[in-house]
Write a protein that binds this DNA or RNA. Structure first.
Lengths: 172, 172
DNA sequence: AAGGCCATGTAACAAGTTACATGATTAA
DNA sequence: TTAATCATGTAACTTGTTACATGGCCTT
């Protein structure tokens, strides 16, 4: 009775396809590769690695300097990952505190809210620019490009929305 | 030393501005009002209500039938909510299993992936239509309209992105 | 008035975050 | 060669999810 993988664990197995890595390295790889739409922390990674080692999906190699413990995929880990990929992915989740604040804006100071929006805008502009650079720089396979395309569409949408806000508030 | 509110607790205080409500009712209200970009579950709500009652931010009324326990705002709850609104909101989080699967698509069956995308597409179309209906139906204040505008921009972006995918994969 | 359904809540668990500890490596 | 820094990991806590329990309400 093969227990299901959670998406976090699955992503680790995915990265381990490229070769063995320590927990620390996996955190870095994941942050760079999928960080903007799938966050994970060191604690999670170590926990998942330990749990997966227990289940035989990964195997820890000998402890190196600074107690680095490299993990590598096992055959059953490879199988579990393939099975996870074949399953229908769950719904996305968005948690957006700015939207929450905005929804209650009637009880807030309008200028302050707009300032919060403006502050977030900077970060979204930065991300969009970074995505575009990555997209043109090449070195991504088609699937990675498709993933990145989401980021670009998303950031464009956020920026367009932010531009709409003042007019909407003024009209209301 | 006033401890910070977390966004979930803050949203409950926000809803309680409209009058007293039980945990169950708050779950329903929140689900309808902000459910698509801020999820919360019953257990969370009861826990937060109990914790906030402890801190004096809300006050439970007499237990009614079916052990319904209505909560209402206190003055300090009102103050805590206002303070929360004034603070800069944290960054948004997106967790999108479909993107995760897509990013690793090189190890997956392309047709199956596209089928997963198509399946999600239906739900996004449904949401976009629902948002548009709500937007034109009226009854929202300007802040709620601005919130809804995000939903519309977001769903449009997701649909546009999904339309892009086959070409991106074919080109790569 | 009995059976099923529904509103309400709790408890156990899983996932995610934050703060801390420790042993290499590097630089002054 | 000692101080600073950094990679690595663990532990404690918070938040989020799932599964369960209970008692009122409704329908026939």
């Amino acid at each position: 009775m093969m227990a299901e993988l959670n998406p976090t664990a699955a992503s680790l197995l995915g990265f381990l396809h490229a070769g063995e890595a320590s927990g620390f390295e996996l955190v870095e790889i994941a942050g760079a590769f999928i960080g903007d739409f799938w966050s994970l922390t060191r604690s999670q990674v170590y926990r998942e690695l330990a749990a997966m080692a227990e289940r035989g999906l990964v195997q820890a190699g000998p402890t190196g300097p600074r107690s680095r413990r490299p993990y590598r995929l096992t055959d059953s880990g490879r199988g579990a990952f393939a099975a996870w990929l074949a399953e229908p992915p769950g719904p996305e989740q968005i948690r957006f505190p700015l939207l929450l604040a905005l929804a209650f804006g009637a009880s807030a100071d309008r200028e302050l809210l707009l300032a919060h929006v403006a502050e977030h805008r900077v970060e979204h502009e930065r991300r969009l620019a970074a995505y575009r650079t990555t997209a043109t720089a090449g070195g991504l396979d088609a699937y990675q490009q498709a993933t990145l395309a989401f980021g670009i569409r998303y950031e464009e949408a956020v920026l367009a929305w932010m531009d709409d806000i003042p007019a909407i508030l003024a009209a209301g």
